[in-house]
Every structure is written in C-alpha cells, then in structure tokens.
C-alpha cells in the first residue's frame, strides 16, 4: 500500500484513465477508455442508458469492486499512481476520491454524526465541531440545520439529505468528488441548489458527474465526455471535449444525433 496523501499533484490532470476496460465476470461493460480529467473542473459524463456511464464513474474510485464479479483492465492514474496497482488499497483510494450517489443515503444517525463519522474513522484529530460546521457550510446546508444537529439525518428533505451526503463527503477532504446522478432524483428547486453547490465546490475540488439530463450537463459542466455502447453492449468513449464545443459543434455525427435528440 502506498501512502498518497502528501504527494504533490502530478502534471496537468487530476485523474486519468488509460485503456481502461471494466468487466462484470465475462461481460465487458466499458472498453478501452482513455479519459483525462482536468483538476478543479466539472466533467460531465453523458450517454444513453446502459452505456456504462456509472461503471466508468465507479471505476475511478474502485467502487465497482463492491460487486463481487467486477474487475478492471488497464490503468487509472491518480497522482502518478495506478489505483489498480498491486500495492494500492481500495480503501485508501476512496479516501481521496469520494462519492455521492443518486439517491440520498444518509446514515440513520444524527446530522452531526453523519458528517463526523467519515472523518473520525479516517483518524481526524482536530476539532470535530469546526470540521462539521465547515463541511456543512461548504455544502450550503449549515444555516438550515445548525439548530438541529442532533436530529436524525432522515428528518431532512430529499434535497437537504443530498447536500448532507455532499457535506459528509467533503468532511473526509477528498481531492476528487464523484457524483452519480446526484441531482437527478430531486425536485427542480433542489436540483438547482445542488447545481449551484457543484459550481462552488469546483473552486476547490475536481468533480466528475454522471447525468442523463443534458441541460444539466450543459449548464453545470466545463467538459463533457459522451459515451455510447457498441454492438456487444460495451460502453466506449465517443467524444470528449469542452462542454460548449460538444453541445454546439460536436465533431462526431453520433454525438450530434444524441445531443439533438435523435436517439437516446
């Protein structure tokens, strides 16, 4: 296991997939993807259902491995290390690359504990109260919950719960935050709030977001990666570039078809 915490950020890229293929047993879900994610930017992954967007996202912090049959081929470089290397512990990877899920999933604990738990098990030693407040502020939730920190995380509304999940991820101080359709299951106002929050967070964090909502991708992201699946149902990267370019002037015909709503 290699300690990755005190290394300087390497090169231009926050994280980079090289010839990455992800399998579930014999089935190849994502094939030979090369993707370079720029730091402190929001990168959106879009594409039709089943094209391997989520699998690709989870490959970035080895969450795929929670499915017992999943395995990967190729490399994902993070701070100069292949996170799939033999000497790398998946738990270490996830400490640096956090994840927020589609459905809000707070722990059945108090709001305070929800935020504090991740930091505590990761050995955080400084003032926990400060960390909780700071994380909740960064997640734009502090004003709404500061008087009820000892209430259950479930007492919040869906949008608040999702922001609580973001706060809890921030509290572990990751370099990269993966968001798996994080703003999809919410009502429009809550969705907008989360999008605003993502923009703010992008000042400090690298964010990779999977979304099936193209307006959202266009609104919120700096760069966009478009995925499709081939005849073997394996997802592959079709086109990757600045969001503006992808949405206004795509190089690839399939991208254009998808963007303009001809299929998908």
């Amino acid at each position: 296991m290699t300690d990755m915490s005190n290394r300087p950020r390497n090169g231009k890229y926050a994280i980079e997939a090289r010839d990455l293929s992800v399998y579930y047993g014999d089935f190849r879900a994502v094939k030979t993807v090369n993707l370079r994610i720029e730091p402190r930017k929001i990168t959106a992954i879009i594409g039709p259902s089943g094209c391997g967007k989520s699998t690709m996202l989870r490959a970035f912090n080895r969450m795929n491995e929670l499915v017992p049959t999943a395995w990967a081929e190729g490399e994902v470089l993070f701070q100069g290390h292949n996170i799939y290397g033999d000497d790398v512990d998946a738990v270490q990877v996830r400490r640096h690359i956090g994840m927020v899920f589609q459905k809000p999933n707070p722990f059945p604990k108090t709001i305070y504990e929800n935020v504090a738990w991740g930091a505590r098990i990761n050995g955080y030693k400084n003032s926990m109260d400060e960390l909780v407040e700071k994380s909740l502020r960064q997640a734009a939730l502090w004003d709404e919950v500061k008087d009820k920190l000892d209430q259950s995380g479930y007492s919040l509304s869906g949008g608040q719960q999702q922001r609580l999940c973001i706060a809890r991820t921030i509290a572990v101080r990751p370099e990269i935050i993966l968001m798996d359709e994080t703003a999809s299951d919410l009502e429009p106002v809550a969705t907008l709030k989360i999008e605003d929050l993502m923009r703010q967070l992008a000042e400090n964090y690298t964010i990779i977001v999977v979304t099936h909502n193209m307006q959202q991708a266009a609104r919120v992201s700096d760069r966009t990666a478009f995925f499709m699946m081939d005849e073997d149902r394996a997802g592959y990267l079709v086109e990757y570039g600045p969001t503006k370019e992808i949405f206004t002037n795509p190089h690839n015909q399939r991208t254009e078809d998808y963007i303009t709503g001809r299929f998908g």
């Binding site: 912090n61 999933n105 999940c165 572990v172």
Partner: peptide
Amino acid sequence: PNSLRQAGMGLGATRWQTIWH
C-alpha cells in the same frame, strides 16, 4: 439497504468499519 454499505465504503471506510458502524 445496500446504499448504506456504499455510503460507508464511499467515505473510505474499510469493510469492517462499515459493518461494525
């Protein structure tokens, strides 16, 4: 629910920490 396990693991907890907590 599985989402609880994912939440725990997603925060960089080990499997045992997630199970125990």
